[in-house]
């Protein structure tokens, strides 16, 4: 059974069909890339899966259970975490605090517990900090832990966002253009992190423009154009697909 199954999902903005009956499925442990020219509907598709936008039709299943139309926090609580194309960190908080927010669903402390500082709370907090620190270490963020995220360079901010999503211990990770704005060195580092994350058993769906990264890490690729899926397959097939080439390079006969 696929971990994520999207069937005929659709969303339009006014007259524009941003996502037009797109279907695909992701097997557990896979890295699946979604590519397509600007405005193809990739981020809209992500927002539909993550619940930020309400779909206008179709079905979405996560581990066989429908998550269609659920609000974003419910979807996150089920184990789908994401990063944002335009990094959305909590800018007034430190790196550690940001990543701890990612760990929110794995903690229990309520307002009541917190207000009266029950001992269980401190134990939980310690456990959380330990886990989160380990994630930060994996992504080379240890030296930034106590810095406010607004003071970090863009590449590091992207990594903090990745760490924050990982802290939720997701089963499915949605990465929206994780390499955008990164230099070559940072991108290759990112590729190795992505592979490492997959090794730990997390399924990844990735939107990306950097073709070398996409071809490098992904097992399968879905190609969108004008809201429609035009191709799906392994990287070597996609590279040879005439329709995909036409979309990317422009078709003289069109």
């Amino acid at each position: 059974m696929p971990i994520l199954e999207v069937k005929n999902i659709a969303r339009s903005f006014g007259g524009l069909k941003a996502v037009d009956r797109v279907s695909f499925s992701v097997e557990g442990g896979q890295i699946k890339a979604i590519i397509g020219p600007n405005g193809a509907g990739k981020t809209t598709l992500f927002n539909l899966i993550a619940g930020i936008l309400e779909p206008h039709g179709g079905e979405v299943f996560f581990k066989g259970e429908s998550i269609y139309g659920l609000p974003p926090h419910k979807i996150a609580q089920k184990g789908i975490f994401r990063t944002f194309q335009n990094v959305q960190l909590f800018s007034r908080m430190t790196v550690l605090e940001n990543i701890l927010v990612g760990h929110h669903r794995k903690m229990q402390a309520s307002f009541f517990h917190a207000a009266f500082g029950v001992p269980a709370l401190h134990r939980e907090e310690k456990r959380a900090v330990k886990k989160v620190t380990a994630i930060a270490e994996m992504l080379n963020l240890t030296k930034h832990l106590h810095i406010q995220t607004s003071q970090l360079d863009f590449g590091t901010q992207r990594l903090v966002e990745l760490a924050r999503a990982l802290a939720g211990e997701p089963e499915l990770l949605l990465l929206d253009e994780p390499a955008a704005g990164l230099n070559i060195h940072e991108t290759s580092q990112l590729a190795s992190f992505i592979r490492q994350i997959r090794t730990s058993g997390i399924t990844i769906v990735l939107i990306e423009h950097d073709m070398s990264l996409v071809m490098d890490v992904s097992d399968e690729i879905v190609v969108l154009s004008y809201g429609k899926k035009i191709a799906e397959g392994i990287p070597s097939e996609i590279q040879k697909n005439p329709e995909v080439i036409a979309v990317y390079l422009g078709n003289e006969n069109a």
């Binding site: 993550a50 930020i52 609000p71 974003p72 926090h73 996150a76 975490f81 994401r82 944002f84 959305q88 960190l89 909590f90 800018s91 007034r92 908080m93 605090e97 701890l100 927010v101 990612g102 929110h104 669903r105 903690m107 402390a109 309520s110 307002f111 917190a114 939980e124 907090e125 959380a128 924050r164 999503a165 939720g168």
Partner: peptide, 19 residues
């Protein structure tokens, strides 16, 4: 945990709910 969630809401409701 709840305080962090509140401050997260202050900075970005979208990101907070995604977490």
């Amino acid at each position: 945990r709840v305080g962090r969630a509140l401050r997260a809401i202050h900075d970005s409701e979208e990101a907070a709910s995604a977490m």
